Computed example of a mutant assay.
Amino acid sequence: MRCPFCSSEDTQVKDSRQAEDNTAVRRRRLCGKCAGRFTTFERVQLRELTVVKKSGRRTPFDRDKLARSIMIAMQKRPVEPERIEQMISGVVRQLESAGNSDITSDHIGALVMEGLAGLDKVAYVRYASVYKDFRATADFETFIEEEKLDSEESEEE
């Protein structure tokens, strides 16, 4: 593993432990050249995923980008980081096991919305405001009213 500080390849693993609900290995490393310490994560990757954007542009799937967007929606919300990480891992597992290497950004957004709906309603609405491209406060009102109707209908069933 190359050191992020001096680019030396002389690094040693000092500590390894399970992370992210046993879906990753966290390794603490030490650079032999500059003595810099850094952390790496090792995860199983079932297949290379490609995101197909609304414009048709194709980019490699980036788990960290997904996590950042979810963390923005979750800012200052009373949800344990472990539950957030479990949700992110669940979304990634669903994407990897879907059987298709090409996934649309809409599909990713829908899975995240589903996960956030069960985790935190405020984060769910925050994420929806970006995912559904809200332009005015009326968009928030409409979305919340539709959600109320959907939840009332599902309670009646």
Rank of each mutant, 00 (worst) to 15 (best):
D15K: 04
A117G: 07
S105Y: 06
G90K: 02
P78A: 03
A98I: 04
N100F: 14
V13C: 04
R83N: 07
H107Q: 13
E20F: 12
D150V: 13
K53R: 14
T59N: 15
R26Q: 09
D106I: 11
E80P: 10
R68V: 01
V25G: 03
E82T: 04
F38S: 05
E157S: 14
R27D: 04
Y124C: 05
I108S: 00
Q94T: 12
Q45E: 14
R126K: 09
T23N: 06
M71I: 06
D21K: 06
G109S: 05
E114G: 01
A19S: 13
E141K: 10
R57Q: 15
R57S: 14
S151M: 15
V122T: 10
E156Q: 13
T39D: 08
R83M: 02
E141P: 12
E153L: 14
A138I: 03
A136K: 14
G36W: 10
E156S: 13
K132T: 11
I108Q: 07
S129G: 05
R37W: 09
I70T: 10
R135L: 11
L46S: 10
F143W: 01
I108Y: 01
R27S: 00
L49N: 04
R57K: 15
L49P: 03
A117M: 00
G99K: 04
D150E: 15
G118K: 09
S55V: 09
K121D: 07
D120R: 05
T50Q: 06
E42F: 01
F134Y: 06
T137K: 09
E157L: 12
G99Q: 08
Q94R: 14
T59V: 15
N22Q: 06
S105E: 02
S8W: 01
D150H: 15
T59Y: 15
D150I: 14
R68S: 10
V112K: 10
